[in-house]
Amino acid sequence: MTEYILLIVSAIFVNNILLARYLGNCPFLGVSKSMDTAIGMGMAVIFVITSAGVITWMVQKYVLDPFGLAYLSTIAFILVIAALVQLVEMFLQKSVPALYRALGIFLPLITTNCAVLGVAIINIKEDYDLLTTLVFSFASAVGYSLALVLFAGIRERFAVMKMPKPFDGTPLGLITAGLLSMAFLGFSGLLK
């Protein structure tokens, strides 16, 4: 049990997928201008990363490994993720229209979010078992959403402030992300 708790703390705070592993930065800077979109994106990411992590793990262990096709894993994973995102989109549209409207445009964007493929690859590289994969994927996604929501909260304040012209927008966003990342470095004392 302790090892799972450690894994969760590590994935959310210490090795935050966005701020310490640098995955998924494009949507991070793209959709973090307002709190509502950040929350929508965060929910969609949690859902997709967790399910994609588990499914790609199964594809690797039950399809690619037995047939000696491990070198195809990059192609297989990206196709699985693209198909999964499509499926999730259709499923939500039919059965949970309210959630579909809330997540709306964020779902298709997730295919090219490198955090999804990144987590799938880390699961295989670290040789996790199924339960660890599930826990790690979920915790990483929660860490991603946490960073996204915190960042959006900071960024909303930018709108009312006076900025030096050349630094307005992305440059200042990046520097803020750097400061946030520095704050998260403080958590590294939690784990030995």
């Binding site: 200042l172 992300a177 990342s181």
Partner: peptide
């Protein structure tokens, strides 16, 4: 990690100054 973000942020800002 923080160094990477801050460094890229400053480089972007400098590029904008040169471009302007």
């Amino acid at each position: 990690a923080p160094g990477a973000f801050v460094c890229l942020g400053f480089l972007l800002g400098i590029m904008n100054i040169i471009g302007a």
